[in-house]
Amino acid sequence: MSKLSYPLLDVSNLTMDFGGLRALNGVDLSVKSGEIVALIGPNRAGKTTFFNCITGIYTPTHGDIYISARGDKRRRINGMKPNLVTRHGMARTFQNIRLFPTMTVLENVIVGRHCRTHSGILGAVMRNSRTRREEQESVDRSYELLEKVGLQMFADELAKNLPYGAQRRLEIARSMATDPFILLLDEPAAGMNPQETAELGELVLRIREQEKIAVLLIEHDMKVVMRLSDRIYVVEYGQGIAAGTPEEVSKNPAVIKAYLGEEHDA
């Protein structure tokens, strides 16, 4: 890892208050190019709040969030609107799947191309050659992404009719359509059976290898986390309690205590 380049995502001292409640307290985290990083912790530890803060849905109370695309300058994104965060190259999925239910699978993915395309109302009505070309590129790219996640045969189905596991994969394809350099996945394996979970793992690894996209994921399934992650951050009660390689983290007494104290089946 070159010392000169900034991490893709660099979060320091992130703090988020809701009224009197401190949901996050001074969390640090970074993701470097080519990495798969996991953020774990017991339920309600603040993981999703962390995602919401760095993607602009909440404005954090304190702290700094920097992103820097490969070769791009460092950009502070605190309080930036969610759509701009996506435009700058950080895309996400949601814990409770948020697809566009009555649009087709393909359309869901094409919507993801929105921030990489430009045609406006006039272009849509005139359907000039530039718009047509742009549309075609979006469609082609979307089919390509559907193939990558194995959903090409469902392209014309309505998103709401997909089985659960497929909906999660569609969400990943849709966020990849925004051409991110880093992808945030919020519990991508939740509710999946073991086979689907294994396939998802393969998918995440392929995303890193083929698309050169770094991944930050929240996940409860420890097998997935241990297999995929290069590094793991652990939060509890809104505070970072450990960070390191899967091996380091799994031996960390604070982590063991947090997990055994909360859920035994983890």
Binding site: T55, I57, K81, P82, N83, L84, T86, R87, A91, R92, F94, R98, L99, F100, P101, T102, M103, E107, I110, V111, G112, R113, H114, C115, R116, T117, S119, G120, I121, G123, A124, T131, E134, E135, S138, R174, S175, A177, T178
Partner: peptide
């Protein structure tokens, strides 16, 4: 069109819509 799809996406889910980079 691009705009029409953005409208529909907005109708379906505002938060997801913004996460797709739509203003």
């Amino acid at each position: 069109s691009r705009i029409g799809r953005a409208w529909m996406a907005l109708r379906e889910d505002e938060i997801a819509c913004q996460a797709m980079g739509i203003d």
